[in-house]
């Protein structure tokens, strides 16, 4: 696999799994208005994942759906941050805030990359992500004074740093006003390792598809 395909899959896996996790709030968020808002964010993320998979799929001679569903659990390259099962609202918003901050840096880097196809998609994604960032900031302001929100930010910070490749991490630390965690702290959150709940999520998301292999749905 080329470096390009690997990078596309990493990004696509993050967006897909996060979209999956965010959609777990549909119907049970603190406000009905938030059910609707969070659901749109989740749909955008899955839409981004699909577009990224499509580029990778052309290179790998497969399809977006096959990449999204038919790989083995250890072939997914998602960062552990996006894999955590529906957490409480404080941790969900903390992940949302941290992920959007990291993602902004990642998408900016892609927009400036020499790869025209990827840069074009990144620009489109960024225009949608802008609304996610507004949503994240609104909630960050609302929850700022809540100790459980601050605790969730601290707890998730190393996993958020691990979303980005090493060269982009200092920028995230600078923008969020936080210190980079030590390498030993980062180790458990690096890509390639998975969150504890990952196997269960994979089982669930591929369940229907595996039930009749090769079928159209």
């Amino acid at each position: 696999m080329t470096e390009r395909a690997r990078a596309l899959l990493e990004y696509a896996d993050d967006e897909l799994i996060l979209g999956w996790r965010d959609s777990e709030w549909t119907g049970v968020a603190p406000f009905l208005e938030e059910d609707v808002a969070f659901s749109s964010i989740s749909q955008n993320e899955v839409g981004h994942a699909r577009a990224l998979y499509e580029i990778a799929a052309r290179e790998l001679g497969t399809t977006a759906d096959e990449l999204a569903f038919d790989r083995k659990p250890d072939e997914y390259r998602s960062a552990p941050l996006v894999e955590f099962r529906r957490m409480d609202w404080a941790a969900t918003i903390a992940r949302h805030v941290l992920y959007e901050a990291a993602d902004e840096i990642r998408v900016e880097a892609l927009k400036d990359s020499g790869d025209e196809e990827v840069a074009g998609l990144a620009a489109k994604m960024d225009r949608e992500e802008a609304y996610h960032r507004i949503h994240a900031q609104m909630w960050e302001e609302r929850l700022r004074g809540e100790p459980r929100f601050q605790a969730a930010l601290d707890e998730l910070w190393p996993a958020a740093v691990a979303v980005l490749p090493e060269e982009l991490r200092p920028e995230l630390a600078a923008r969020t006003g936080r210190d980079l965690p030590s390498n030993s702290l980062l180790l458990a959150h690096e890509r390639g390792s998975h969150a504890e709940e990952w196997p269960a999520l994979w089982e669930e998301m591929t369940e229907v598809r595996r039930s009749v292999p090769g079928a159209a749905w």
Binding site: G47, H48, R50, K124, M125, R127, E128
Partner: peptide, 11 residues
């Protein structure tokens, strides 16, 4: 007034 309804990927 809101007049921006973003759908960049033609959902």
């Amino acid at each position: 007034e809101i007049d921006d309804f973003v759908d960049e990927l033609g959902r």
